[in-house]
């Protein structure tokens, strides 16, 4: 069983209202880091997980407070341009053989979903958000313009190509360079391009 170091950072104030602003889970297994020294580092990290998590929560809350005005944005070139003034990133990193999962959403948590709503999800081989920068991944994507309206989603052959342009100042900037989404009701297909800037 690989050893894992995980940091789960949640903002207490948002937990009260059900929101998870940031869920950053950093797993580092031997295979992932590729050396024995790294394994030892991970082991040490694990031993202090709980204490560090508490500390990290406090730090993150402060960061979030400083950046309270940043909520991210989504600009998609679909049939008609889609612009949303919110975008949030979640990175869940699991030990091998599982991959990590990067998720970019137009809502903090499902309970606070508004429409248009966007959900993008991509498996990633990284141990921290910073490692995402410069990578290109293939993502599933779901878009629903109206509550109860048609769901657009990526078919298996139309996964969206996403290039992570930058990860800095608690924000992930991703460019969607190609892909297709299908209307579940009409089977209409449209190409997807655009940009998502997600806070975490």
């Amino acid at each position: 069983m690989p050893r894992i170091a995980c940091i789960s950072v949640r903002r207490p104030s948002t937990r009260r209202d059900g929101a998870v602003l940031l869920c950053l889970l950093t797993a580092a297994a031997g295979g992932l880091l590729g050396c024995e020294k790294a394994k030892e580092d991970v082991k040490k990290q694990v031993q202090s997980t709980v204490q560090r998590t508490q500390t990290q929560v406090k730090k993150t809350v402060e960061v979030v407070k400083q950046q309270a005005n940043i909520v991210g944005s989504i600009e998609l070139a679909l049939k008609e341009p889609l612009s949303i003034k919110a975008c949030y990133a979640t990175l869940a990193v699991l030990p091998p053989p599982r991959q990590g999962i990067l998720q970019l959403t137009s809502y903090k948590v499902p309970d606070q979903e508004s429409f248009p709503s966007v959900f993008l999800r991509a498996p990633v081989d990284v141990g921290s958000p910073e490692e995402l920068a410069g990578r290109t991944v293939r993502a599933q994507m779901y878009v629903q313009f109206q509550s109860g309206g048609a769901v657009w989603y990526t078919p298996p052959e139309g996964l969206v190509e996403v290039t992570i342009q930058s990860v800095e100042q608690q924000a992930v900037t991703a460019e969607l360079t190609g892909g297709t989404i299908v209307n579940a009701q009409t089977k209409e297909r449209i190409d997807v391009k655009g940009k998502m800037t997600a806070v975490y």
Binding site: R3, I4, C6, S8, V20, C23, L25, A27, V46, T49, T90, A92, V93, L94, P95, R98, G100, I101, Q103, T105, P110, F119, R121, Q140, Y142, Q144, V151, Y153, A184
Partner: peptide
């Protein structure tokens, strides 16, 4: 350690299931 792994897994799968169900 395992509990955190479970939390990570939940974060990586719950919303996907919600969108899959909706679709």
């Amino acid at each position: 350690e395992f509990a955190i792994q479970v939390d990570a897994y939940r974060a990586a799968t719950t919303d996907l299931l919600r969108w899959r169900q909706r679709t």
